[in-house]
């Protein structure tokens, strides 16, 4: 199945990846190739098969709903590219 340029542009946008217009044909072609490869899965009879959700048969553990960590503002912000007055700084979000 071929991916159109519009579809490639859309998937790049959904993935939040900037792509130049002139890169789109190559990307569409590559993604189409990979999707074709996945198309082999259509040969498999999956009637009545349950999709896998957990590869090892384990029950997820529950834990007490209590505070375990917190109050580490400096630590949390220490790797931020930009922070101001104890907050992450981002471009203007509200017009």
């Amino acid at each position: 199945m071929g991916l159109s340029l519009d579809e490639a542009r859309k998937v790049a946008h959904l993935a939040r990846i900037h792509v130049e217009e002139d890169e789109l044909p190559a990307i569409a072609k590559e993604l189409s190739g990979i999707l074709d490869f996945m198309g082999q899965l259509n040969e498999v009879d999956i009637t009545g098969i349950v999709p896998m959700t957990s590869v090892t048969p384990m029950k997820l553990k529950l834990r007490q709903d209590v505070v375990s960590t917190g109050g580490d503002k400096e630590v949390v912000l220490s790797n931020a590219p930009l922070s101001e007055q104890g907050f992450f700084a981002v471009p203007k979000v509200v017009e």
């Binding site: 991916l3 998937v11 790049a12 959904l14 993935a15 939040r16 990846i17 900037h18 792509v19 990307i27 590559e30 993604l31 990979i34 999707l35």
Partner: peptide, 18 residues
Amino acid sequence: RGEGFGPEVKRRVMIGTY
């Protein structure tokens, strides 16, 4: 993300998104 990810990672993130 366009500047920070390499070509193979971008390819897989886009395939996964699709």
